[in-house]
């Protein structure tokens, strides 16, 4: 079946951090075939700059922005959350398990919890007003939008009025859950429809999986 067969099973084993698709499928919403398809994507991303089979931050940024030097607060946070071992790279197992949260069939509570950790910039267990302002500033900067400082303060203050129901100046995980239940659109970006059936979205992956299944 031509070049789609170029990555053999033996080559897979050589990739650092490679994990058995059966195990990954049992721990995530993905099927074994979908984990195989994700491995193709992983190989592409993890060899885009440094050919070591691990996703470095520059490679992650390149995939997100088509520019490895793009600095983005949120991409950094996502990378750090995917990098569970905190060793500066995303390994295959980390990639699959983290993406599993973004699967349409993943538990809503996992998506809400992931988003909370994402926005808890300093990992204190709370989203603080200063963090929220920092994130709004980052968003405005990347969007080339300008809002006066007064207006930004007003947006942040209003958000805290609505979300910080205990009125202690910070948003805890329970308050976050309640806030998201009132505003479900806040976690819309925590679901990637592409993942519903990644093997169909990427037909070349099906071809490779079929070859492997028949081996």
């Amino acid at each position: 079946m031509g070049c789609v067969c170029s990555t053999s099973s033996s080559e897979k084993v050589k990739t650092p951090g490679y994990e058995d698709p059966t195990i990954l499928a049992s721990e995530t919403p993905f099927t074994v075939s979908e984990v195989d398809a994700l491995y193709e994507l992983y190989l592409k991303l993890s060899n885009s700059i440094i050919e070591d089979g691990l996703i470095h931050k520059e490679e992650f940024q390149l995939a997100l922005f088509r520019n490895k030097n793009e600095k983005n607060l949120f991409a950094d946070r996502i990378f750090d959350l995917f990098d569970v071992k905190r060793n500066g790279v995303i390994e295959f197992g980390e990639f699959v398990r983290s993406l599993g949260v973004f699967h349409p069939n993943a538990a809503l509570e996992d998506k809400i919890a992931f988003a909370f950790r994402l926005y808890d910039l300093r990992q204190t267990g709370y989203i603080e007003k200063q963090e929220l302002k920092e994130m709004v500033l980052a968003l405005l900067h990347e969007s080339d939008l300008y809002l006066s400082d007064e207006m930004i303060e007003s947006i942040v203050d209003k958000t805290f009025e609505d979300a910080d129901t205990k009125e202690d100046g910070r948003i805890d995980e329970d308050e976050w859950k309640a806030f998201v239940s009132q505003h479900p659109s806040l976690i819309k970006n925590m679901t990637l429809p592409y993942l519903k059936d990644i093997t169909l979205a990427f037909p070349s992956f099906i071809a490779r999986t079929e070859v492997e299944d028949s081996e």
Binding site: L41, L45, A63, L64, F65, N72, L73, F74, A75, D76, R77, I78, L99, F102, L118, Y119, L132, K133, M135, V136, A138, L139, L140, E142, S143, L145, L147, M151, S154, I155, V156, K158, T159, D162, A163, F179, H183, S185, L186, I187, K188, N189, L192, Y194, I198, A201, F202
Partner: peptide, 26 residues
């Protein structure tokens, strides 16, 4: 521009850095 009517998290959720669908673009 609509941001004034949005809450801060709505604004933030529109960041390209949070749009992981870009990872799947060929």
């Amino acid at each position: 521009v609509a941001p004034v009517t949005m809450n801060a998290f709505e604004l933030i959720s529109k960041s390209q850095g949070l749009n992981l669908s870009s990872l799947f673009e060929k």
